Computed example of a mutant assay.
Amino acid sequence: MPDGQLKSVDIQIAAADLETLKNSQYQLCFAKKVNNSYNVVWQSAADYLSENTFSWQPLYELFGSNDFKGDVTVHVATNKVSIGLGDEATLDKNGVLGDASSGGPATGITLVNDYGPIHPGLCAYSTDISGRGTTTPIYVAENQVVAGNDVLTPVESVQVWFEQDIATSTMFSTARSNAIEIDLTDHNTATRLYSGGAWSTPKTNALFVDPKAILTVIAALTAAVVIQDLASKIASKLTGVYKDVKVDVTTMGGNTVKIEYREQQGLTAVRQNQTRLLLQNRTAVDQLAGFALESFAQLGVGYLTLNATTAS
């Protein structure tokens, strides 16, 4: 995921379809591709409205499960360990996962299996359509793996569909009815419309307007930081009322960083207006600056100088 960018999809539902789906108690479901397949409900929501935003970051947890069975909730049988792309973790002979360390393909997550037959699995962080951040399962290998190495490769594609009587973390092994795949490998945002029982990409010429810069923070830090780590820390805080704000972090040389907050691309005029009204409140702008300071502290650095400039 380049530059630690937040990925998000905006799901729009036409009024007539929304009424039909709600009356029939359909859930709005999301799944993430791993090893070129979808097999776990990442998030399932009943509280969807006409516009819904689902987002995620490259924050993963590795685990092992004793079984894979369709229409059953994932059972995490081992401990879980935080892990990133290009990392590996060892499942020892007692079935305990050790801490992650560098190793394996840069685009995958490697399980070094010293235990025996096990179903490797992954959890991932997401922000649901209500703005709540959680880490839930996205994948369980359908077949057991034996001793040796197994690589799990997350792909920046999600599957979206509507289904009755299904919950978050449910495993499935059959194709979901009337699902759409959204590939964000080369993009950070996408919008899809569900209307007349079919999916489409809405035209942007009338619906959307250009994003606007909000705040720029330039800080000279007391130590170097990994730009991607800082961007991810800040982006994880942009939930709830701040879900339509994005952040970019770049280096300006030495230990000086530039943090830019902007509106998300592809917002409808209504959502963009809501965001701009929110940011007319000075407290909201101060909160964005505060997210940067909190992220510095989480990474164990302070700042020598800091300049925050709001957009005119």
Rank of each mutant, 00 (worst) to 15 (best):
Ala269Cys: 00
Gly64Ala: 10
Ile227His: 04
Phe63Ala: 04
Leu293His: 03
Asn149Met: 06
Thr275Lys: 05
Asp17Trp: 06
Pro211Glu: 13
Thr135Pro: 00
Lys93Leu: 08
Ala16Tyr: 02
Ala106Arg: 04
Asp67Asn: 15
Leu277Thr: 12
Tyr125His: 10
Gly240Ala: 15
Asp17Asn: 04
Asp3Thr: 12
Trp42Asn: 06
Ala179Glu: 02
Asn149Arg: 10
Leu193Gln: 15
Leu279Thr: 08
Ile166Pro: 02
Ile118Asn: 00
Asn149Phe: 02
Thr107Glu: 14
Trp161Lys: 05
Val245Gln: 05
Gln12Ser: 11
Leu49Asp: 13
Glu142Gly: 02
Gly86Cys: 03
Ile234Thr: 07
Gly253Gln: 10
Asp229Gln: 15
Ala15Met: 06
Asp183Ile: 04
Thr222Cys: 09
Gln228Ala: 15
Pro105Ala: 15
Gln159Met: 15
Ala224Arg: 11
Ser177Ile: 06
Ile83Asn: 04
Thr90Glu: 02
Leu267Asn: 01
Asp244Val: 03
Asp3Ile: 07
Leu277Asp: 10
Leu230Val: 06
Val34Asp: 07
Met1Asn: 11
Val41Leu: 11
Met1Arg: 07
Pro58Met: 03
Gln159Phe: 01
Trp199Arg: 09
Leu97Val: 07
Leu306Asn: 06
Tyr139Glu: 03
Phe172Leu: 08
Gly108His: 08
Leu85His: 08
Ser24Phe: 02
Thr136Leu: 13
Leu278Tyr: 11
Leu18Glu: 10
Thr135Ala: 03
Lys212Cys: 04
Pro58Cys: 02
Val160Arg: 00
Ser232Glu: 13
Phe68Val: 09
Thr185Glu: 08
Thr305Glu: 14
Pro154Ser: 11
Glu163Asp: 13
Val151Lys: 00
Ser24Met: 07
Gly64Thr: 12
Gly302Arg: 08
Ile166Met: 08
Ala141Ile: 02
Ser295Thr: 10
Thr204Gln: 12
Val249Arg: 01
Phe30Cys: 04
Pro154Ala: 11
Val285His: 05
Leu288Gly: 07
Phe172Ala: 04
Gln25Gly: 01
Val209Arg: 12
Lys69Leu: 10
Val112Pro: 00
Ile13Val: 14
Lys33Thr: 05
Ala15Gln: 12
Asn35Pro: 08
Ser157Cys: 12
Ala223Arg: 13
Leu267Ile: 06
Leu238Trp: 08
Glu51Asp: 14
Ala284Gln: 15
Lys32Gly: 11
Cys123Arg: 14
Val96Leu: 10
Phe162Gly: 03
Ala175Cys: 00
Thr135Trp: 03
Arg282Gln: 14
Gln264Asp: 10
Ala219Lys: 12
Phe208Asn: 11
Thr189Ile: 07
Tyr194Asp: 03
Ser55Asp: 05
Ser195Met: 09
Asp186Gly: 02
Ser82Arg: 05
Thr153Gly: 05
Leu230Gly: 03
Gly300Ser: 06
Ser126Arg: 07
Thr310Ser: 14
Leu62Pro: 01
Gly64Asn: 05
Gln43Val: 09
Ser236Phe: 08
Thr135Ser: 11
Gly266Pro: 01
Val285Leu: 15
Thr73Lys: 15
Ala289Tyr: 05
Gln272Phe: 01
Trp56Pro: 00
Gly95Ile: 04
Ala206Gly: 04
Thr20Leu: 09
Ile138Phe: 02
Glu61Lys: 14
Asn281Phe: 10
Ser312Ala: 13
Pro137Lys: 07
